[in-house]
Every structure is written in structure tokens, then in C-alpha cells.
Amino acid sequence: METKSIMIVGVGGQGSLLASRIIGNVLLSQGFEVKVSEVHGMSQRGGSVVTYVKYGDEVSSPVIVKGEADIIISFEQLEAARWLPFLKKGGHLVTSTQKIDPMPVINGAAVYPDDIIEKIKAQGVDVIAVDALTLAEQAGTAKASNVVLMGVVSKKMQFEESVWQAALEQCVPAKFLELNKKAFALGRAAE
């Protein structure tokens, strides 16, 4: 099988590490060779963060380059716009509709673009936009928007739901499991 690439992008602190671990475990359980590349350190402090997940029969480079991602999962609209060039032609973009102003916008040095999702769609890209934050709050905490998005993405990938449930159990501490399962289910039912 040809190598497939998934990118998870967002703002430092939004929980992309957990998301990548869940996907990584799903893929490993399906017998693929998997590489997941994370960002630690400086950019975790509210900067733009990106995590790469790659899988297939043989995966060499752990990073994804422009035009290579089959799926981009974005936790925030501006980040979806920023990382759009990494999407492959015919790839899918799953994004939360959440907006977080970066410091240059807060300071008035830059403007947050309007209608990002429409403008991306106008490029011919398949976009699935979900209000993951509200769904996460319904599940019990804003922090679970990462898992809501996992629920959304699970429908774009060919694996059984039980496989995702097993990965959740592996990656989420027991006391938060119920909440996260609820968040996942809300994501899966969204759209």
C-alpha cells in the first residue's frame, strides 16, 4: 500500500498530541507501519503546531511536505488556511469552526481573514467543518474538542468504530474515558 499521510494542526495547548496518539494506535492495531511526528517545546506555548501521522507498508520520513496530506484535521480555522498547501489534490480537510486570534491580530498588526471555510472550498477542496468546541462542551469539557474531531475523522477512514474505541481506551486515562467516548460519539454523529 502507498504511504498515507494525515496532518493534525492547531494552536499549542489544544490537545493535538492526544489526537495523534489515538490515530497512531488505530493504525498500529491494523498492522500498518506507522510514524507519528510531534512538536514539543517552544511552539507548544500558544504557537501554531502540527503533528504528522504517516502509515503504509513502509514509512521512511516522519514528516509531511506540501501536497502530500490525504487528510488535514484542523482544530482552528486560521490553522486550516495556513496548512492548506500541505493537502494533496483530492484530499479531505476536517476543521473545527473555532477561531483563536493570534497575537499579531490581537495587536492589530494583522487581520484575521473572513470566510476562511468558504474560501478554502472555493479552491475545490472537500471541507468538513464542525463546531467541535460546542460539541465538546456538550460532552462535558472544551478540552475534548480534539476527540470530537477524531469522531468526525473516523468516518473518513475505513476502520471499524470498535478499533477507535479500543484506541481511546488505550490513550485516555480511565477517569476521563466516559467523557471522551461521549465526545467521540458526538463527533461521529456530526454533519
Binding site: G46, G67, L84, P85, K119
Partner: peptide, 18 residues
């Protein structure tokens, strides 16, 4: 490689104090 681009400039998001 070929790739799509967002049609406007995208403001940078540098790290900040939490």
C-alpha cells in the same frame, strides 16, 4: 509537488505567554 494555496495572506501565530 502541486498544491492549493489559501488566496490571502495568513497571519503568523508565534508562541506567546499562556
Amino acid at each position: 509537488a502541486e498544491f492549493a494555496e489559501f488566496p490571502e495572506s495568513v497571519p503568523v501565530r508565534p508562541p506567546v505567554m499562556c
